[in-house]
Design a protein around this nucleic acid. Structure first.
Length: 421
RNA sequence: GCGGCUUUAGCUCAGCUGGUAGAGCGCCGGAUUGUGGUUCCGGAUGUCACGGGUUCGAACCCCGUAAGCCGCCCCA
């Protein structure tokens, strides 16, 4: 048997309905904040991510699906979308369009990691980017927007973590100070930290080993090393969030794994997701455009929601799965009725009803199917009905039956459905 | 990439100290042929994840592989 490849999966009904619900909720919020959709290719040049996400990050150095195309070019399945959006922004000179460019995307990303709950090799992200402003007001609005999306899908009990990782002007000073202090204490830390202190000292701050925590707490904080501009920017973001009544926790140790982040970084976590408790992450990337070869600066900020994890959380918080319903099941009895029923069905479908036209099965079986498929009404069409021109319309919930002419059908069904809802 | 646990029907699972499989739900059919939900009766479905090994005999013991889950790493 051929199975879905490791780390990928099929999204089947009724779960697919939850996915659609999450996506349309997001689209509505994006619309309200005047974000427009961008669709970028899943295939990109490898260099795009090496230059943006960072050659030395795990994502680029060991998790990308890479292949050499027939013409020799190195291509990858995109591991994230921000780099692609920025690439498109530069390529199509979106800086020439008026105002801040506010773009959103929904689609699959690929990273070759060890799969586990909430982590897949093909996973979906819902994300947005606001490019063309370094105003802290944009940061606050972006964060507000993503919280609105969560609220819209019924998630209220999440936690917003906030930090500033500085800029190329002040971060090197912090890293140097960190290295300096680590020299004296690193031999008392876990093996991973000993390695990280050489390769990526910032990652030491993210260590979860309990014994290391007292040591880490004594290490310098990035917030004490921010330059004047970064400090002012971060304070402004915080006060704009306060204005909105958005609660957050400053986590000086929140380090993100992509090299392009500057200044504001944030993450929203949710319990019951297990080890992969991060629902979404984001941040500012003021130097990204230049890193990708743009001659005009294009400071921006964005986020990306792990849609798989969001859907998982929604499904857990609303276990009463709404049953898939259809408006009408038509049970034709005999070939003449079947032909006639097809026309009735097409007419009602054109009016917007969800109609299932039964195959030519026995009436008992037809009613059974109408019930199992969740039909609100069943319509019986047989020789008697064809002759008289009136059909038998049955309310599946109450069991009541009455006759209706073809012209009365739509009215009978919709009027009662309005009453029910 | 590393470690631990798991894998039996579509789903959730049982299966004793090795004797070649079961339940519930679901699915399909029937209970006088134009009426569902409840009930009753009946039925189908498994290479017991895959490949080796031990044994007269393996779902069960051993080895390997794969997949899933849980950690690590990393991240969404």
């Amino acid at each position: 048997m051929i199975r879905a490849v490791k780390g990928t999966r099929d999204i089947l009904p009724p779960s697919s309905a939850v996915w659609n619900g999450v996506e349309s909720a997001a689209r509505e919020v994006f619309r309200a904040y005047n974000y427009e959709e961008i669709r970028t290719p899943i295939l990109e040049e490898k260099a795009l991510f090496a230059r943006s996400v960072g050659q030395e990050t795990d994502i680029v150095s060991k998790e990308m699906y890479t292949f050499t195309d027939r013409d020799g070019s190195e291509l990858v399945l995109r591991p994230e979308a921000t780099a692609s959006v920025m690439r498109a922004y530069i390529e199509h000179r979106l800086d020439q369009r008026p105002g801040v460019q506010k773009l959103y995307y929904i689609g699959p990303m690929f990273r070759r990691e060890r799969p586990q709950k909430g982590r897949y090799r093909q996973f979906f992200q819902i994300g947005a980017e606001a490019i063309g402003s370094e105003s802290p007001a944009v940061d606050a609005e972006v964060i507000e927007m993503v919280i609105e999306i969560l609220r819209r899908v019924g998630i209220e009990d999440s936690q917003l973590l906030l930090n500033s990782v500085g800029c190329p002007k002040c971060r090197p000073g912090f890293v140097a100070a960190l290295r300096d202090q680590l020299k004296d204490v690193v031999q008392r830390m876990c093996a991973d930290c000993q390695r990280r202190s050489e390769t990526n000292p910032l990652r030491v701050l993210d260590c979860k080993v309990p014994e290391d925590q007292p040591i880490i707490d004594a290490l310098p904080s990035i917030l004490d090393y921010l330059c004047e501009e970064c400090r002012t920017h971060f304070d402004a973001v915080r006060s704009y969030l306060d204005d909105r009544g958005i609660a957050y926790e400053v986590r000086p140790r929140l380090v993100r794994g992509l090299d392009y982040y500057t200044r504001t970084t944030f993450e929203i976590t949710h319990g019951a997701l297990g080890a992969q408790n991060s629902l979404l992450g984001g941040g500012r990337y003021d130097g990204l455009a230049e890193a990708l070869g743009s001659r005009v600066p294009a400071p921006g900020i964005g986020f990306s929601i792990g849609e798989d994890r969001l859907v998982m959380t929604v499904e857990e918080s609303e276990p009463e799965k709404r049953r898939h319903e259809i408006d009408l099941y038509i049970a034709p009895l005999g070939d003449a009725a079947l032909r006639h029923a097809a026309l009735v069905a097409r007419n009602l479908r054109r009016q917007g009803l969800c109609v299932e036209l039964g195959a030519d099965v026995k009436l008992k079986r037809a009613m059974e199917l109408a019930n199992k498929l969740g039909a609100r009404y069943a319509l019986l069409i047989g020789d008697t009905e064809l002759a008289s021109g009136t059909y038998v319309l049955k309310d599946m919930a109450s069991g009541e039956q009455r006759s209706a002419t073809r012209n009365q059908l739509l009215d009978s069904i919709t009027r009662n459905s309005d009453k029910d809802r």
